[in-house]
Design a protein around this nucleic acid. Structure first.
Lengths: 205, 205
DNA sequence: GTCTATATAGGGATAGAC
DNA sequence: GTCTATCCCTATATAGAC
């Protein structure tokens, strides 16, 4: 079983305005359909149809349907790594939270569709995690739940953090396209402002 | 095809500590499995197995798998109606928002598992809506998106509202069981407080 | 790299016995 | 009200031709 590109799901920035590889075209279509209909309701036949070739052809590029979802998941991992690694998870008191959240806002604005995909296919993605996906678990979800369970924090602090996380998700991934008319920059600024207001009483500057 | 109970999915409060009807036992198990694994990944066989009888028996109580999900959806509708009808959607400026959000917090705290079910099966539920479910559409989601799209509101107000909605969802339905150690009353108070802080600059008292 | 054809399994749904 | 048996369809996945 020969694979044309790497298995990470991200062929990396080879630079230039290259033509999209078939593998990536599959991923793009899959992302669209998985988001609209959900992972399980989307069949490989449907994906292949949109691409103009037959179902079986997909198996040249991916060993299974799960691997398509996994590849999409890895795309997000890639970006998440950058935002998370800049923050020292030790000192999550003080203003480090804001920094983390601001980084999150930026990432979401850049790769919004990926985040929406994840939000709408949580069940399927969690099962991927259980089954294997032995890769490191630096998932956003998992990270946040760890922080929220931190016994060193007060109940108020924990809840506030969860609220702030939600406040970011609300307009950016839970609200569909209602904010399409607002320029990205402005949207980001407004969300950051809200996050700031929420964290103020907990982590005073 | 004779049905033992009403078709609304809610047999209503007949009072007392009655034994749960089979129909409701099915719904309870379904809710659990749909939440854990997602709607599509859950088979009728699986539901029947847990109840100790066979797959086909379910068809005595529900005409299709979709109807099980629909019945669960109607359970939420029932509760939502109360919270929404108290608020005049006309004056969604001023403090009416807070009132609406506070009602929402209360409902979520009471029927949390139902909200989680909905959050984790959005795709499937949206398809239900498209296909039929001709019943009135007083859905929370739909209502909120209407409000968020209201052109009479400023961008800041709209985004703030979405943030507040998210801030409520964050700790209450998106965070799993991390807050199980915090008493319900305290949790509600903390969330309401956060919602208040978020809406302050937009809808001063 | 994409095709056809096919194997195989599982799920939803129906009929009818008890 | 629950069961057995069965139908039918769709989906994933494989084998092998071109």
């Amino acid at each position: 079983m020969v694979k044309p590109t790497s298995e990470t799901g991200l062929s990396g920035p080879e630079g230039g305005a290259e033509q999209e590889s078939t593998r990536e075209r599959i991923l793009d279509i899959a992302m669209e359909l998985f988001t609209e209909q959900g992972y399980e309701k989307t069949s490989l036949r449907q994906i292949a149809e949109r691409l103009g070739f037959s179902k079986a052809a997909i198996y040249y590029h991916f060993a299974s349907k799960d691997e398509i979802l996994l590849a999409l998941h890895m795309r997000l991992h890639e970006f998440g790594r950058g935002a998370l690694s800049t923050v020292d998870l030790g000192d999550l008191r003080s203003g480090a939270w804001l920094e983390l959240l601001n980084g999150l806002v930026e990432q979401i604005l850049r790769h919004r569709s990926l985040f929406v995909l994840h939000e709408r296919n949580r069940a399927a993605l969690e099962q991927l995690h259980r089954q294997g996906h032995d890769a490191e678990h630096e998932d956003l979800d998992i990270l946040f739940r760890q922080v929220l369970a931190n016994p060193a924090l007060s109940a108020r602090e924990r809840v506030r953090l969860a609220c702030t996380f939600g406040a970011v998700m609300g307009p950016l991934v839970l609200s569909g396209e209602v904010f399409a008319d607002i320029p990205t920059d402005q949207l980001g600024a407004l969300v950051r402002e809200a996050a700031h207001d929420l964290l103020l009483p907990v982590a005073p500057v």
